[in-house]
Protein backbone atom coordinates (compact mmCIF):
# COMPACT_ATOMS: atom_id res chain seq x y z
CA UNK A 1 0.00 0.00 0.00
CA UNK A 2 1.45 3.33 -0.89
CA UNK A 3 2.38 5.99 1.60
CA UNK A 4 -0.36 8.39 0.57
CA UNK A 5 -3.13 5.87 1.14
CA UNK A 6 -1.65 4.84 4.47
CA UNK A 7 -1.51 8.41 5.60
CA UNK A 8 -5.06 9.19 4.52
CA UNK A 9 -6.23 6.09 6.35
CA UNK A 10 -4.56 7.25 9.51
CA UNK A 11 -6.02 10.70 9.21
CA UNK A 12 -9.54 9.41 8.79
CA UNK A 13 -9.25 7.10 11.77
CA UNK A 14 -7.64 9.90 13.76
CA UNK A 15 -10.71 12.03 13.13
CA UNK A 16 -13.04 9.19 14.03
CA UNK A 17 -11.26 8.73 17.33
CA UNK A 18 -11.28 12.39 18.18
CA UNK A 19 -14.60 13.19 19.78
CA UNK A 20 -13.70 16.63 21.07
CA UNK A 21 -13.02 18.53 17.86
CA UNK A 22 -16.47 17.83 16.31
CA UNK A 23 -14.80 17.48 12.95
CA UNK A 24 -15.85 14.60 10.75
CA UNK A 25 -14.40 13.17 7.57
CA UNK A 26 -16.43 10.80 5.41
CA UNK A 27 -15.93 9.06 2.12
CA UNK A 28 -17.95 10.39 -0.76
CA UNK A 29 -17.64 7.47 -3.10
CA UNK A 30 -15.34 4.49 -3.27
CA UNK A 31 -12.20 6.52 -3.59
CA UNK A 32 -10.37 7.30 -0.35
CA UNK A 33 -8.98 10.38 -2.08
CA UNK A 34 -12.27 12.17 -2.46
CA UNK A 35 -13.72 12.98 0.92
CA UNK A 36 -16.24 15.17 2.64
CA UNK A 37 -15.29 17.00 5.80
CA UNK A 38 -17.60 18.90 8.08
CA UNK A 39 -17.35 21.10 11.11
CA UNK A 40 -19.63 23.28 13.23
CA UNK A 41 -19.58 27.03 12.74
CA UNK A 42 -17.44 28.73 15.38
CA UNK A 43 -19.39 30.20 18.26
CA UNK A 44 -19.45 33.94 18.68
CA UNK A 45 -19.58 34.45 14.92
CA UNK A 46 -22.43 34.81 12.42
CA UNK A 47 -21.69 31.21 11.48
CA UNK A 48 -22.55 29.86 14.92
CA UNK A 49 -24.95 26.96 14.87
CA UNK A 50 -24.30 26.13 11.24
CA UNK A 51 -22.92 22.86 9.97
CA UNK A 52 -20.43 23.40 7.18
CA UNK A 53 -19.47 20.75 4.69
CA UNK A 54 -16.27 20.80 2.71
CA UNK A 55 -15.33 18.87 -0.41
CA UNK A 56 -11.84 17.40 -0.05
CA UNK A 57 -9.77 16.12 -2.97
CA UNK A 58 -6.42 14.58 -2.17
CA UNK A 59 -3.85 15.17 -4.90
CA UNK A 60 -1.49 12.54 -6.16
CA UNK A 61 1.57 13.83 -4.42
CA UNK A 62 -0.12 14.43 -1.09
CA UNK A 63 1.19 15.22 1.52
CA UNK A 64 3.78 17.15 -0.43
CA UNK A 65 1.09 19.05 -2.27
CA UNK A 66 -1.82 20.77 -0.50
CA UNK A 67 -5.23 19.15 -0.37
CA UNK A 68 -7.91 20.74 -2.50
CA UNK A 69 -10.80 21.98 -0.43
CA UNK A 70 -13.92 23.92 -1.20
CA UNK A 71 -17.12 24.52 0.66
CA UNK A 72 -20.10 22.43 -0.33
CA UNK A 73 -22.27 24.48 1.98
CA UNK A 74 -22.81 28.04 0.77
CA UNK A 75 -20.98 30.49 2.98
CA UNK A 76 -21.15 34.27 3.05
CA UNK A 77 -17.55 35.16 3.77
CA UNK A 78 -15.00 37.46 2.10
CA UNK A 79 -12.53 34.62 1.59
CA UNK A 80 -15.01 32.10 0.27
CA UNK A 81 -16.62 32.37 -3.12
CA UNK A 82 -20.33 32.72 -2.51
CA UNK A 83 -21.05 30.90 -5.75
CA UNK A 84 -18.50 28.10 -6.05
CA UNK A 85 -17.31 27.65 -2.48
CA UNK A 86 -13.68 28.17 -3.48
CA UNK A 87 -11.54 29.09 -0.51
CA UNK A 88 -8.77 31.63 -0.30
CA UNK A 89 -6.46 30.43 2.43
CA UNK A 90 -2.68 30.46 2.35
CA UNK A 91 -2.18 26.95 3.69
CA UNK A 92 -4.27 25.57 0.85
CA UNK A 93 -1.82 27.19 -1.54
CA UNK A 94 1.80 28.17 -1.10
CA UNK A 95 1.94 27.99 2.69
CA UNK A 96 1.07 24.31 2.77
CA UNK A 97 3.34 22.04 4.73
CA UNK A 98 3.35 18.25 4.64
CA UNK A 99 2.96 18.09 8.41
CA UNK A 100 -0.51 19.60 8.09
CA UNK A 101 -3.35 17.11 8.15
CA UNK A 102 -6.93 17.03 6.97
CA UNK A 103 -8.03 17.67 10.50
CA UNK A 104 -5.71 20.59 11.08
CA UNK A 105 -6.71 22.07 7.74
CA UNK A 106 -10.40 21.80 8.58
CA UNK A 107 -9.69 23.47 11.91
CA UNK A 108 -7.97 26.23 9.96
CA UNK A 109 -11.07 26.67 7.85
CA UNK A 110 -13.10 26.89 11.00
CA UNK A 111 -10.86 29.64 12.27
CA UNK A 112 -10.96 31.36 8.91
CA UNK A 113 -14.69 31.79 9.55
CA UNK A 114 -13.79 33.51 12.83
CA UNK A 115 -11.38 35.96 11.23
CA UNK A 116 -12.24 37.10 7.73
CA UNK A 117 -9.45 38.71 5.75
CA UNK A 118 -11.17 41.23 3.43
CA UNK A 119 -7.86 42.54 2.11
CA UNK A 120 -7.18 39.27 0.34
CA UNK A 121 -10.66 38.38 -0.82
CA UNK A 122 -11.94 35.45 -2.77
CA UNK A 123 -15.32 37.06 -3.28
CA UNK A 124 -14.83 40.76 -3.96
CA UNK A 125 -18.48 41.68 -3.50
CA UNK A 126 -18.70 40.05 -0.12
CA UNK A 127 -15.44 41.70 0.88
CA UNK A 128 -16.81 45.09 -0.16
CA UNK A 129 -19.89 44.44 1.87
CA UNK A 130 -17.72 43.52 4.84
CA UNK A 131 -15.62 46.67 4.66
CA UNK A 132 -18.61 48.94 4.07
CA UNK A 133 -20.74 47.75 6.92
CA UNK A 134 -19.65 44.98 9.18
CA UNK A 135 -23.00 44.92 10.91
CA UNK A 136 -24.93 44.46 7.69
CA UNK A 137 -22.40 41.85 6.53
CA UNK A 138 -22.88 39.86 9.71
CA UNK A 139 -26.64 39.93 9.35
CA UNK A 140 -26.32 38.53 5.88
CA UNK A 141 -23.78 35.92 6.92
CA UNK A 142 -26.09 34.88 9.74
CA UNK A 143 -28.99 34.65 7.35
CA UNK A 144 -26.94 32.48 4.98
CA UNK A 145 -25.96 30.28 7.88
CA UNK A 146 -29.63 29.82 8.72
CA UNK A 147 -30.66 29.18 5.15
CA UNK A 148 -27.82 27.03 3.90
CA UNK A 149 -26.00 25.68 6.94
CA UNK A 150 -29.08 24.76 8.93
CA UNK A 151 -28.63 27.03 11.91
CA UNK A 152 -31.61 27.85 14.13
CA UNK A 153 -34.88 27.95 12.22
CA UNK A 154 -34.65 24.22 11.59
CA UNK A 155 -34.20 24.34 7.87
CA UNK A 156 -32.59 20.95 8.00
CA UNK A 157 -28.94 20.24 7.72
CA UNK A 158 -26.59 21.79 5.23
CA UNK A 159 -28.28 22.56 1.99
CA UNK A 160 -25.53 22.95 -0.51
CA UNK A 161 -25.36 24.83 -3.77
CA UNK A 162 -28.08 24.06 -6.26
CA UNK A 163 -30.10 22.09 -3.76
CA UNK A 164 -30.36 25.14 -1.53
CA UNK A 165 -31.75 27.21 -4.37
CA UNK A 166 -34.75 24.98 -4.82
CA UNK A 167 -35.60 24.74 -1.14
CA UNK A 168 -38.30 26.65 0.72
CA UNK A 169 -38.71 30.23 -0.46
CA UNK A 170 -36.06 32.50 0.92
CA UNK A 171 -35.83 36.17 1.28
CA UNK A 172 -33.57 37.04 -1.65
CA UNK A 173 -33.17 40.57 -0.36
CA UNK A 174 -31.63 39.27 2.82
CA UNK A 175 -29.47 36.81 0.92
CA UNK A 176 -28.08 39.64 -1.14
CA UNK A 177 -27.43 41.59 2.04
CA UNK A 178 -29.73 44.44 1.08
CA UNK A 179 -32.59 46.21 2.77
CA UNK A 180 -36.20 45.74 1.78
CA UNK A 181 -36.84 49.51 1.85
CA UNK A 182 -34.19 50.17 -0.77
CA UNK A 183 -35.29 47.41 -3.04
CA UNK A 184 -38.90 48.42 -2.70
CA UNK A 185 -38.08 52.00 -3.62
CA UNK A 186 -36.72 51.05 -7.03
CA UNK A 187 -39.25 48.31 -7.58
CA UNK A 188 -41.94 50.95 -7.36
CA UNK A 189 -40.32 52.73 -10.30
CA UNK A 190 -41.32 49.73 -12.37
CA UNK A 191 -38.14 47.73 -12.43
CA UNK A 192 -38.07 44.00 -12.05
CA UNK A 193 -37.37 42.92 -8.47
CA UNK A 194 -34.59 40.51 -9.33
CA UNK A 195 -32.87 43.09 -11.42
CA UNK A 196 -33.04 45.70 -8.67
CA UNK A 197 -31.49 43.28 -6.22
CA UNK A 198 -28.78 42.39 -8.68
CA UNK A 199 -27.84 46.00 -9.40
CA UNK A 200 -27.95 47.12 -5.79
CA UNK A 201 -25.81 44.19 -4.74
CA UNK A 202 -23.28 44.90 -7.43
CA UNK A 203 -23.09 48.56 -6.48
CA UNK A 204 -22.75 47.57 -2.84
CA UNK A 205 -25.76 49.66 -1.82
CA UNK A 206 -25.30 49.15 1.88
CA UNK A 207 -24.54 51.03 5.06
CA UNK A 208 -22.81 54.33 4.51
CA UNK A 209 -22.61 53.66 0.79
CA UNK A 210 -26.32 54.35 0.47
CA UNK A 211 -25.72 58.07 0.81
CA UNK A 212 -22.76 57.97 -1.59
CA UNK A 213 -24.57 56.39 -4.48
CA UNK A 214 -26.98 58.68 -6.22
CA UNK A 215 -30.36 57.30 -7.28
CA UNK A 216 -29.68 58.39 -10.88
CA UNK A 217 -26.68 56.14 -10.97
CA UNK A 218 -28.80 53.19 -9.98
CA UNK A 219 -31.50 53.98 -12.47
CA UNK A 220 -28.81 54.24 -15.13
CA UNK A 221 -27.58 50.81 -14.23
CA UNK A 222 -31.11 49.46 -14.19
CA UNK A 223 -31.77 50.82 -17.68
CA UNK A 224 -28.68 49.19 -19.12
Amino acid sequence: MDARLRRVNKEISDCKNDKTSNITIDLIGDSPFHLKGSFPGPSGTPYEGGHFEVDIAIPESYPFQPVKMKFITKVYHPNVSSASGAICLDILKDAWSPVLTLKSTLISLQSLLCSPEPNDPQDAEVAKHYTTSKKSFEDTARYWTQVYAGAGKGKGSAAGGAVGATEAPKNEVAIAGLEEVHVGKFEKLGFERGKVIDVLRRLNYRGSNVTNIHDDRIVQELLK
Binding site: S81, S82, A83, S84, A86, D123, E125, A165, E172, I175, A176, G194, I197, D198, V199, R201, R202, K224
Partner: peptide, 28 residues
Protein backbone atom coordinates in the same frame (compact mmCIF):
# COMPACT_ATOMS: atom_id res chain seq x y z
CA UNK B 1 -25.50 43.05 -16.77
CA UNK B 2 -21.78 43.83 -17.20
CA UNK B 3 -20.96 40.86 -15.09
CA UNK B 4 -22.74 38.45 -17.34
CA UNK B 5 -21.61 39.86 -20.62
CA UNK B 6 -18.06 39.81 -19.37
CA UNK B 7 -18.31 36.13 -18.67
CA UNK B 8 -20.36 35.13 -21.63
CA UNK B 9 -17.53 34.22 -23.97
CA UNK B 10 -15.74 32.06 -21.52
CA UNK B 11 -16.28 28.38 -21.39
CA UNK B 12 -18.00 27.57 -18.13
CA UNK B 13 -15.21 27.08 -15.66
CA UNK B 14 -16.04 25.54 -12.31
CA UNK B 15 -14.79 28.45 -10.23
CA UNK B 16 -14.80 31.66 -12.16
CA UNK B 17 -18.36 32.71 -12.86
CA UNK B 18 -19.30 34.08 -9.48
CA UNK B 19 -21.52 36.74 -10.79
CA UNK B 20 -23.77 34.99 -13.29
CA UNK B 21 -24.51 32.13 -10.96
CA UNK B 22 -25.29 34.44 -8.16
CA UNK B 23 -27.56 36.62 -10.19
CA UNK B 24 -29.34 33.53 -11.34
CA UNK B 25 -29.92 32.60 -7.77
CA UNK B 26 -31.31 36.00 -7.07
CA UNK B 27 -33.79 35.82 -9.86
CA UNK B 28 -35.25 32.48 -8.98
Amino acid sequence: SPGISGQSEKTPSPVAPDIPVKSEDMET
